[in-house]
Design a protein around this nucleic acid. Structure first.
Length: 109
DNA sequence: CCGATGACTTGAA
DNA sequence: CTTCAAGCCATCG
């Protein structure tokens, strides 16, 4: 039960506010290990197995690129979801990334 | 324990 | 611009 890395990642992911995004590195940094950025992505991979909805579409890489779109099955699915939340996306790049960026180390503490 | 995998990151060529 | 390499760490077989 005790949560591990995954549960922490899920906790943060579920707390991402509407219209905001964060990066794998930011979450990993909040967990205390910035090197675990890949693990965050791995956790997201398992997040779809959870009974609840995880806004994995709000998690992108440090450049604001939609690197996870390939995992959404579609090609522009992720981008459309983000745009529907008010996030401006151009191809795989989030234009207003700095404006919608949500850092758990600052906002969540 | 070991090797492979991965939705990352940074830097260099 | 693209491509490759190394570091990072949890999970799986």
């Amino acid at each position: 039960m005790e949560n591990g890395f995954f549960q922490k990642v899920y906790d943060i992911a579920m707390q991402i506010p509407y219209g905001r995004v964060t990066s794998y590195g930011a979450i990993a940094n909040y967990l205390g290990s910035k090197g675990s950025a890949r693990i965050v992505g791995w956790a997201m991979n398992g997040s779809k197995s959870l009974p609840q909805n995880i806004p994995a579409h709000r998690v992108v890489n440090s450049k604001g690129l939609l690197t996870a779109k390939n995992h959404f099955g579609g090609s522009t699915t992720m981008a459309e979801i983000l745009e529907s939340e008010g996030i401006i996306v151009d191809g795989n790049q989030i234009i207003n990334f700095q404006k919608v960026f949500w850092d758990p180390t600052l906002e969540l503490q």
